[in-house]
């Protein structure tokens, strides 16, 4: 069994969001970088659990980015995984990133490719579907459970107002979210082991990005909260009905 886990570096969930250079660049000043939570808590940990069940499993981690991604990928290796691959190129857009991952996936022939359901910076939800398409592999999105028996995967996925259980033969690409696994904290042994695990840096394949970010903007500031006395709940109902037209 060979599993690929896609890892993205994102700002910490509490990071201050601001922009520089005339609102064209994300302001990285003072930002803490983390493994995208969906990649870490759900896809990586589920892959590690599968390896714990079947120790012959090999887990590769992959990220597309510059050397500044190395601390984050080492942290991921400290949780688990056998080796990491970094495609040495800026993550230009989702198609560019997915095409780089697909290139590696075609060479390595993984049985399972896990991605997070989205990265918390650009909220694209695009990499899994693109990698599946570019490698001609079945795709299950927004998975909350993943069980493997032989070559058959039973996967629960979120649908509008409920859940569906899908059955598919591997290979499969799966985007993961809450429910797949529980967050883990790397232990000292893992951190030490991660230092010597291979981190292979490969040069990118020539692919054109199809989109580019022109600018960012912050949402307009809220006008400020209108407080209503707890003794006058009727006033809140009136405001919601007449002013906000929300009920």
């Amino acid at each position: 069994m060979k599993i690929l886990v896609c890892i993205s570096k994102t700002p910490d969930t509490t990071a201050r969001i601001a922009f520089t250079d005339n609102n064209t660049q994300f302001d990285e000043n003072g930002v803490q970088w983390i493994i995208n939570p969906y990649d870490e808590w759900y896809s990586l940990v589920r892959a590690i659990e599968l390896k714990e069940k079947d120790p012959t499993t090999i887990i590769h981690l992959i990220t597309v980015g510059g050397p500044d991604c190395d601390p984050v990928i080492r942290k991921a290796l400290a949780l688990g995984g056998d080796e990491a691959i970094r495609v040495n190129a800026p993550a230009k857009d989702s198609y560019y990133v997915a095409a780089q991952i697909a290139e590696i996936a075609r060479q390595e022939k993984y049985d399972i490719i896990f991605t997070g359901k989205e990265a918390i910076d650009f909220n694209g939800s695009a990499i899994g579907g693109m990698v599946a398409e570019l490698t001609d592999t079945p795709y299950i999105s927004l998975a909350t459970k993943f069980e493997l028996t032989g070559n058959t995967a039973l996967i629960s996925r979120e649908i509008e107002g409920g859940e569906e259980i899908d059955e598919v033969s591997i290979p499969v690409v799966v985007s993961c979210q809450k429910g797949m696994a529980e967050q883990r904290i790397p232990n000292m042994r893992g951190i030490m082991a991660a230092r010597t695990k291979p981190l292979k840096v490969v040069e990118p394949t020539a692919i054109d990005a199809l989109t580019s970010i022109l600018s960012f903007e912050l949402p307009p500031a809220k006008a400020g909260v209108k407080l209503v006395s707890p003794d006058n709940v009727a006033e809140l109902v009136r405001l919601l009905h007449e002013e906000a037209k929300a009920i």
Partner: peptide, 24 residues
């Protein structure tokens, strides 16, 4: 639409068509 179904197929279709996509 950027719903459960949209998230399952829009980026695949974009990749197939070599089309740039903006989700959300």
């Amino acid at each position: 639409s950027h719903t459960q179904t949209g998230k399952a197929i829009s980026s695949n279709v974009a990749a197939r068509l070599q089309a740039g996509i903006v989700t959300g």
